[in-house]
């Protein structure tokens, strides 16, 4: 990308990150930025390294080379709990809830860092964002439907009101209508309150619609990136990812 278009001042910066699982690096030389109030999406085929990228950013796996910064702080290879304490709410692709605990307990665990008296109020706020959770508070998370479960997972990170959300396929296994609501209402709303959102999404078309910037992963590298609106007009991209003619050429 020779002519970098103007972007807002980033809160998350990754520079030339390489990471993997002990063997050869799975992702190499990935750079990205997320600004406050912005939804940034990462798309790419299965196994292209999207989850690996997010895991390396939030300290689940080691960054082998490159740099990750949050605001002015270098958080490269910080422990996951310290990244969380610095204001990053990470929802993993799998194992995203405390299965044997109730929904209320899941939310309370999300608010572990809060002062005890603040917790109840925050739970109410989360329920106001996801009203469906209200009547599920006493249910065990492992007994919920896929969609309900994702709401719990999102609710857990909302408890701390992080400055950056890192969401790995929040709409996986969701019915199209529910996925649409989650992306277009809730996630879009998170950004409108001033938080940054880094979103991995299989539904590339929806991802482009709600994000301002999109990175395309392939074979462990960032193949291309650009303004989402521009990408959805690019024939090569549309052909590979959206499977059809450009949406608005």
């Amino acid at each position: 990308m020779d002519s970098e278009p103007q972007r807002p001042k980033p809160i998350l910066i990754a520079e030339a990150v390489a990471a993997g699982y002990g063997g050869a690096p799975v992702i190499t030389d990935v750079s990205l930025q997320v600004a406050a109030g912005e939804v940034v999406s990462v798309v790419g085929p299965n196994g292209s390294g999207k989850s690996t990228l997010l895991k390396s950013l939030v300290g689940v796996i080691r960054v082998l080379s490159g740099r990750v910064a949050l605001g002015d702080r270098d958080i490269t290879n910080w422990a996951t709990e310290d990244v969380a304490r610095a204001g990053v709410g990470y929802v993993p692709q799998v194992d995203d809830v405390f299965g044997p605990l109730t929904v209320r307990e899941n939310l309370e665990m999300g608010g572990y860092l809060l002062a005890p008296r603040e917790v109840a109020g925050r739970v109410e706020r989360v329920v106001s964002v996801f009203p469906a959770l209200g009547r599920l508070l006493g249910r065990r998370a492992e007994k919920l439907s896929g969609g309900e479960r994702k709401m719990v997972a999102m609710g857990r990170v909302l408890m701390l009101q992080p400055q950056l959300f890192v969401l790995d396929e929040p709409t996986a296994n969701l019915a199209p209508a529910i996925a649409h609501t989650l992306l277009h209402d809730q996630i879009a709303r998170l950004a409108s309150t001033g938080a940054g959102v880094l979103l991995v999404e299989q539904r590339a078309r929806s991802a482009l619609e709600i994000s301002s910037w999109t990175y395309v992963m392939g074979g462990g590298q960032c193949r291309t990136h650009g303004r989402s609106a521009d990408l959805s007009g690019r024939a090569d991209f549309v052909e590979s990812f959206l499977g059809g003619a450009p949406a608005h050429a």
Binding site: V60, T80, E81, A84, E105, E108, G110
Partner: peptide, 23 residues
Amino acid sequence: RLGKAMRATSCNAGLARASGIRT
């Protein structure tokens, strides 16, 4: 609080860390 963190770690240590718990 420690007990709560223990329960979280027991259920899902990775998620406990992502919730800021020093497992």
